[in-house]
Design a protein around this nucleic acid. Structure first.
Lengths: 205, 205
DNA sequence: GGCATACTGTAACACTGTTTCGTAACAATG
DNA sequence: CATTGTTACGAAACAGTGTTACAGTATGCC
């Protein structure tokens, strides 16, 4: 009897795509309910029916960001050199954050007062870390790294995120060369340290 | 002839103190112009005369955060063991971020759409890094670390911030033991790697 | 007391997120 | 084909932001 519904999952996809574009183009401040509705050719109430509230919009962007990062990282293949593979993975991670600075903020910082990632959302991050864990495992098997895979993956991801956030905030140095040098120094040193005989045998902090 | 001014630097101090308390108590969302004025016993226009705009409030909080972090880290003394001093510095850094989670967000993430730290503000971070650079220098002199002090300091700070942000977001593990283990593993491995003979001599990424 | 000065905070503006509710579009019926 | 009963839609309203204009007022001087 009633008219056909327009606020379908398909529209949700369109609005989500518009949200990512709007976010990248106008920054976090540009992602408003009205602006998003206008950009997607629909109305604010439609956005609210599809996403619940503002936090729902940001949450959807958050998940989409991890989906894309995961897809990006999965493309990094495996060679005979697991150490090089791990570095390539970091490089992709860095490239993704540099190519999508605002999206990365949504994923790793909290530029919106609303949305706060909780237990469910943390699994999105974990889904990316399993890829790192795989690369770490191959390094362990090749004798490049030693220690618990999960621990080592956590540590590596933390370093990469710390570097990426610093670079994004232009805190890692002014000249491109300095930034590049610090990235290389950091990754090589950490990997060397994680592979060394002394790792884990030092005195407590 | 006119009445005595109330919107003095002293009031600014009071309002800033109220802002830090409000931020810690109510989170980033609770820091509003009206709420701050009420908490400090004054009016919104007074806040605007003292801080310019919302970004000015956040900027003042940002600087005050670095001032406090700097004061905190300066308390870490020097012993005969520069490596232990460096670890103690990291531990203080971590403790500060854990004790002031929302303040740390303002300092290292960007929970407010307004304020974006620019060149001037980056020096606030640098003022903290010089303390790390000092500790690094003593490690280099003792043969614990090798390489450029500034580069090494950048790398260490990036790792600590990455770990701290992950821990803050509960991304570094559920159990306290896991988190603690990963912190130790990360710091020791990085320091070991930065002190190793191979550091800096590896192939390019 | 009257007056001039300039400080103060109320009340307004334009913008958010969010929801209500009159309108309109359909499918089934007579 | 006209009527009716559903129900989806979005303009408009509400509450709460950042921000500012300006009426009101406290103060010291004559």
């Amino acid at each position: 009897m009633p008219r056909a519904k327009q606020r379908t999952p398909e529209l949700r996809e369109q609005v989500l795509a518009a949200a990512l574009e709007l976010l990248a183009r106008e920054g976090a401040a540009g992602l408003t309910a009205r602006g998003l509705a206008r950009a997607a050719g629909t109305s604010p109430p439609a956005v609210y029916e599809l996403f619940g509230d503002k936090g729902g919009i940001v949450r959807a962007v958050f998940f989409e960001g991890f989906r894309r990062l995961h897809a990006e990282l999965r493309e990094v293949g495996q060679t005979q050199d697991p150490r090089a593979d791990l570095l390539a993975l970091s490089e992709r991670y860095r490239a993704f954050i540099l190519a999508n600075p605002v999206l990365a903020e949504v994923m790793f910082s909290r530029p919106f007062t609303d949305f706060e990632p909780s237990a469910d959302e943390r699994r999105a991050g974990a889904s990316v870390r399993v890829l790192v864990i795989g690369a770490v495992r191959r390094c362990v098997e090749a004798g490049v790294l030693r220690g618990d895979e999960t621990d080592v993956a956590h540590v590596l991801v933390a370093l990469v995120q710390g570097l990426a956030l610093a670079e994004n905030a232009r805190r890692l140095g002014r000249r491109r060369g300095s930034v590049q040098r610090r990235w290389r120094l950091a990754l090589e040193a950490l990997i060397d340290g994680l592979g060394g005989e002394r790792a884990g045998t030092r005195a407590r902090i």
